[in-house]
Design a protein around this nucleic acid. Structure first.
Length: 479
DNA sequence: TCCAAGTCAATATG
DNA sequence: CATATTGACTTGGA
């Protein structure tokens, strides 16, 4: 019963309690949550975002974020979406008044939340705000009010044709677009906003698969070939890389978590989206592109010993794991053991001499709706990493990160796995041991896109390894 | 300098 | 109208 007398800590506490599934445990390591004075400069460091912030208390969000416990971003966004749709509140309003973000950012955040542990301090901020908002009993009411006020202001504007700036409180960054001010603004310097043609994207993607980190020279070539500005190509690579990465993150979350609802029973209310079928769906969720592309992929198998905690941590990625369709669902064997080794063959294509490494990988797929998963350490076939593409051996590791124990929605679970239910697994000490660890083994994801992403990600990793191993010339290791 | 992570903001879509 | 996508920009780290 440690009580932290910190006055303002109440908000922190509120942050801590809310949802969070049965993850439980993990305690012990309460880092000291002292009020901590490390805010000498704080003051003006952040120019923007005064934002009202429901909390009010003395702590800045940054501080709250810093001491926030691990939040389940997926659940948070899910709930936020529910609340918003149930009450007909838009992302714009929510984003601007609660999160201090624009509509597009909110959309993105809600649709593709990254797992907490992959977020930077800054990136966690919106989630903390969302959690705070969810905890506020009057959240909806407040937003509704804002909505009303906005509407009123709008009406007024239409009437008197007078432009007035922001209504109500909330700070206002002061930004306001003056419309009347500058006479003849436009001109032709509008910056057209480059829009890449499908073929261009295609070409870029292809280039990416070969080389996720093209050298300046390559970039120049691409740019001239496609008739694009160099900076556009550079930007495209940056964006693509990070978006691919993000897609992978969310796969992880969905595969591993899938918590459950619970929350408000919500009386129907046209649930337009949220089609989370546990299975059966036909839609394979998102794809970054829908364009058909010659599915080409390289499945490399490398044995990256993720071991050692890489300095940067962050990026060690979870890229290992490639699942192949191979066994697919075809046989829905619900055997006790739910994994099987598959060697796959990559069927297709070697289009344009793309490299093809030996494929085949061990596949561990836990199927069954339940969470019967096991972590199989897998054999580590070390050996020289580089070059030996042939060796192949992949690890599908996945030290499960959070294993929820007992509890877990007994409600709907159809018993399913009869197994011993993995009793052991103590608390997730494992996790702390291995600083990172990703979770979730992919099920039979048989998306094309997924596969592609993974393949791409492999390339990405290969690149890193290459860089780390011998940072020299842009070796091209074509196989 | 490079890169990644976050965002913005224009524009696509629904 | 609202939400989704995406090229570009910003920030921070090495």
């Amino acid at each position: 019963a440690p009580e932290s007398p910190i006055s303002s800590s109440e908000s922190v506490k509120s942050l801590a309690e809310p949802l969070q599934q049965p993850i439980a445990s993990t305690e012990n390591s309460d880092e000291a949550k002292q009020p901590d004075p490390s805010e000498p400069l704080a003051g003006d460091s952040n120019p923007a975002t005064p934002l009202p912030l429901a909390g009010h208390s003395a702590l800045s969000i940054q501080e709250l974020v810093a001491m926030s416990p691990e939040l389940d971003t997926y659940t948070i966004t899910k709930r936020v979406k529910e609340v918003l749709t149930d009450n007909n509140l838009g992302q714009r309003l929510f984003g601007e008044t609660i999160l201090g973000l624009t509509q597009g950012s909110v959309s993105d955040l809600l649709a593709r939340p990254k797992p907490w542990h992959k977020l930077s301090l800054k990136g966690r901020e919106p989630f903390v705000r969302m959690q705070l908002w969810l905890n506020d009993p009057n959240n909806v009411e407040k937003l509704m009010n804002m909505k009303r006020m906005e509407k009123k202001a709008y009406m007024k504007r239409r009437h008197s044709s007078v432009s007035d700036s922001q209504p109500c409180d909330s700070t206002a960054v002061g930004i306001d677009y003056s419309q009347g001010a500058s006479p003849q603004p436009q001109h032709q310097l509008k910056k057209p906003r480059v829009v890449l043609a499908p073929e261009e994207k295609e070409a870029l993607k292809r280039a990416y698969q070969q080389k996720p980190y093209p050298s300046p020279k390559t970039i120049e070539e691409l740019a001239s070939q496609l008739n694009l500005k160099t900076s556009t190509v550079i930007n495209w690579f940056h964006n693509y890389r990070s978006r691919i990465r993000r897609e992978l993150f969310i796969e992880e979350i969905q595969a591993g978590g899938q918590s459950q609802a619970g929350s408000s029973g919500s009386p129907s209310a046209r649930g337009s989206r949220t089609a989370h079928g546990s299975e059966g769906d036909s839609c394979d969720g998102v794809d970054m592109d829908g364009i058909a592309e010659g599915k080409q992929r390289i499945l490399g198998a490398e044995d990256y010993s993720t071991g050692n905690t890489q300095p940067q941590g962050g990026q060690t990625e979870s890229a290992f794991e490639e699942s192949e369709e191979a066994s697919q669902d075809a046989r829905s064997s619900e055997k006790a053991e739910s994994f099987q080794l598959g060697m796959d063959s990559m069927d297709d294509t070697e289009d344009e001499g793309s490299l093809k490494l030996s494929g085949r990988s061990s596949l561990l797929q836990s199927q069954a709706s339940g969470k019967s998963w096991e972590n199989i350490p897998q054999s580590a076939t070390e050996e020289d990493g580089s070059t030996s593409a042939a060796s192949t051996s992949v690890h599908t590791v996945e030290t499960s990160q959070e294993l929820r124990e007992g509890s877990q929605t007994p409600a709907s679970m159809p018993s399913t796995s009869s197994g011993p239910t993995a009793g052991f697994q103590k608390s997730n000490s494992i996790q702390s041991l291995f600083g990172f660890s990703d979770a979730a083994s992919s099920k039979n994801t048989r998306d094309n896109s997924l596969r592609k992403k993974k393949a791409a990600n492999l390339n990405n990793i290969i690149h890193r390894l290459e860089k780390a191993a011998s940072r020299e010339e842009p070796i091209d290791w074509e196989f």
